[in-house]
Amino acid sequence: MSTRGKLLITGGRGMVGLNLQEHPRAAEWEILAPGRAELDLRDARAVEAWFAEVKPDAVIHAAGRVGGIQANIAHPVAFLEENLTIGRNVVMGAWKGGVRNFLNLASTCMYPAQAENPLKEEMILEGALEPTNEGYALAKIATMRLCQYIRREDPQAQYKTLIPCNLYGRHDKFDPAHSHLVPAVIHKVHMAKLRGEEEVEIWGDGTARREFLYAGDLADAALRAVAEIDSIPDLMNVGLGEDHSINDYYARVAEVAGWKGRFVHDLSKPVGMKRKLASSARQEAWEWRPPSTLAEGLAKTYSFYLERTST
């Protein structure tokens, strides 16, 4: 039985939204997670009308168009326009509808491409963005700024932003044309195992480093944050506090999947930023650490992938 009131989760059919709803803390709320057929977040009037009628007590904004390097390069207009529209509509709809507690989920792509690691929250807007996903990053920055401006004008409105590192986990997209690194690697390695292939290709030299958080762990942080929103800062990174090379992720997935082949590198392919490790200082001051290790997260994600491919 809910004890905290109504919680709107935008993007409730996506990976983050589904992990939020699966988490034990979700039972504290009456969860509202309308799909696009029920509420099109691209329609400002519909969003405002929905907030006026339903009057949720809090929001976790997780909706948006997402994808890996290939998708961002191929569709920059959609990644900017759609995410900008959704972010504006949800934030303004909530504020006009009287919502006081709003948790915006952003992305570490908002950090400058050449920023020194670890990435600290105050570095945002201090340099040029990574070109391969600039449109998505600009939309996320604009939504974050809108939340900050609302807090500036309306101190009672707790509109705050969590900045998760890269994510993977249950309910991820495993299609290589639309997926991020970890689910794409899982699919590639699993298919190589099924086909008896001895080689799997890695884009670039594999030395670029990334920080990946299990989506169930982000749900743990976000649900605590929205319930204790006065306790978190205006902006806060959420991650592991450590990173691994692309080559290491491939090797770890191969271990989980039981594939014994070798990796080859295509040096002609783009790899994005050389390193992207977020500072965990504010998160640690909030006294939160991810419950899952990388090995545990990969094992749970691969198990989910097998369930999906066997149905």
Score class of each variant (00 low, 15 high):
D220A: 11
D234C: 15
E53P: 12
R42W: 15
V200N: 03
K276R: 11
A52K: 01
K6S: 09
L277P: 10
A142R: 13
E134D: 10
L138S: 10
E201Q: 12
A157S: 06
V16M: 06
A113Q: 07
T293D: 02
V59T: 05
T3I: 09
L41H: 01
I163L: 06
N237G: 11
T85Y: 13
Q70T: 12
D57S: 11
V189R: 07
L125H: 10
V16S: 06
P291L: 15
Q21A: 14
N117I: 13
R4D: 07
L119P: 12
K173A: 06
T301Q: 01
D205L: 04
I163M: 08
L80P: 11
G261I: 09
V226P: 03
T301E: 01
W29H: 11
A219F: 02
W95Q: 10
H244E: 13
A44H: 12
I60C: 11
Y214R: 00
E81P: 12
D172G: 05
G35F: 02
I124S: 08
K260V: 09
N247P: 03
S303E: 13
Q283N: 12
G216A: 01
A177L: 15
H61R: 00
A63V: 02
E122A: 14
A58V: 00
L84F: 12
S280N: 10
K120A: 07
E284N: 08
Q114V: 08
I9V: 11
L218D: 07
A115P: 10
G14I: 00
L138I: 14
C109W: 10
A251W: 14
R36L: 08
A128R: 14
Y249A: 02
H178I: 12
E242G: 14
G127D: 05
C165H: 03
W29E: 09
A192V: 07
H61S: 02
Y214P: 00
P155R: 14
Q21T: 08
T3P: 11
A139E: 11
V47M: 04
S310M: 13
D220H: 13
Y250R: 08
E242A: 15
G196K: 07
I232F: 07
G135L: 10
Y249G: 01
R170P: 14
A251P: 00
V253M: 00
P176I: 06
R170T: 14
T207Y: 13
A215L: 01
M191C: 10
R42Q: 15
Y249H: 07
F174I: 01
T108Q: 08
Q114R: 07
M92C: 07
G196F: 05
I232N: 11
V90R: 04
V47W: 02
H75I: 09
N133D: 10
G68N: 01
S245Q: 15
T132G: 07
P155I: 06
H178E: 15
Y302G: 00
Y159M: 02
S279C: 01
E211L: 02
T143S: 12
V77F: 11
A285N: 06
G272D: 04
L18Y: 04
A222D: 03
I186R: 01
S280P: 09
N237V: 14
E197M: 04
S268E: 08
E197C: 04
G127W: 03
